[in-house]
């Protein structure tokens, strides 16, 4: 069965840099993966394993690297319009209202303001923040600010959404709710989502495929296909199947520092 060309393809990606102490540090070693259009993929790994570096390369924020990273076959040289990014910190501009924050990409990319404003309103409704357009960021909670960040990332209608531990700063209850919301947004918008986290349950809940990265130098040590129904209520986190996936991933993480070469990629069964 032929599958369509991947929207993101990474081939033998390696990234080294010089630290402040003038040492050579290898952040990523020989990373290869490919992501199909419309997939929801997560990367799990310990702190400092390089997953943020990987995301930043895909976001076009890192210029130099060895190997290949491409979006729709075009090698990445800088930020791409097909990509929207939501960072760990919502990074809202405190002097702008919520709607003006969402409209930021429209200003930068010189998009049509009228159409963009309409879209901004739709997106705010999509993320569940209808009515908050005129508020200032400091009037919103952390979870709400992250939702604004997601709406902003989607304003210019990118096909891909990159997310760097977007819910890391939230309390556990809010985090679970945000996970549910994010899946809903994904199903409604049909975007391709690439999300980084160090929470194993979050990874299993959110995605259809999970990549496990080892600690520095970061390698992909395991790829897990998550075979859970599309519609997932939060209660699924208590199911046996869910628990098995979590155990499997945890084991993979614990052994990730063992000397195993990166496993060949498997397509979802």
């Amino acid at each position: 069965m032929t599958s369509p060309a991947p929207i993101i393809s990474v081939d033998r990606l390696t990234k080294t840099y010089q630290s402040v102490a003038a040492e050579r540090v290898t952040a990523l070693a020989d990373i290869s993966l490919s992501i199909a259009t419309g997939e929801f993929v997560t990367v799990v790994g310990p702190s400092g394993c390089g997953k943020t570096t990987l995301l930043r390369i895909l976001a076009g924020l890192v210029g130099q690297y060895q190997g290949r990273a491409a979006i729709r076959g075009t090698p990445l040289k800088g930020p791409s319009r097909s990509v929207g990014v939501a960072f760990q910190d919502a990074n809202l501009l405190p002097w702008r209202s919520i709607i003006d924050n969402v409209l930021l990409p429209a200003q930068v990319l010189h998009l049509d303001i009228k159409a963009s404003t309409r879209r901004a309103h739709e997106l705010l409704e999509l993320v569940g923040l209808k009515g908050f357009e005129r508020k200032l960021p400091h009037e919103l909670s952390g979870g709400m600010r992250q939702r604004v960040s997601i709406a902003r990332a989607l304003l210019h209608d990118p096909e891909i959404l990159l997310m760097d531990e977007p819910f890391g700063a939230l309390d556990a209850i809010t985090r679970d709710n945000m996970n549910f919301e994010l899946r809903r947004i994904w199903m409604q918008s049909g975007k391709t989502i690439f999300l980084i986290t160090h929470s194993i349950p979050e990874a299993v809940f959110l995605s259809s495929r999970v990549f496990v990265m080892s600690s520095r130098p970061g390698r992909i040590v395991r790829e897990l296909a998550v075979d859970l129904p599309e519609e997932r209520p939060l209660t699924i986190m208590g199911s046996a199947r869910f628990g098995e996936y979590v155990v499997e991933l945890r084991q993979a993480l614990d052994h990730s520092d063992a000397v195993t070469p990166a496993m060949p990629l498997l397509k979802a069964a």
Binding site: A59, G60, P79, R81, V83, G84, Q88, N91, L104, V108
Partner: peptide, 10 residues
């Protein structure tokens, strides 16, 4: 972080 947001939009 805020500068990153802008840079990600080129």
């Amino acid at each position: 972080g805020k500068v990153d947001v802008m840079r990600a939009l080129a």
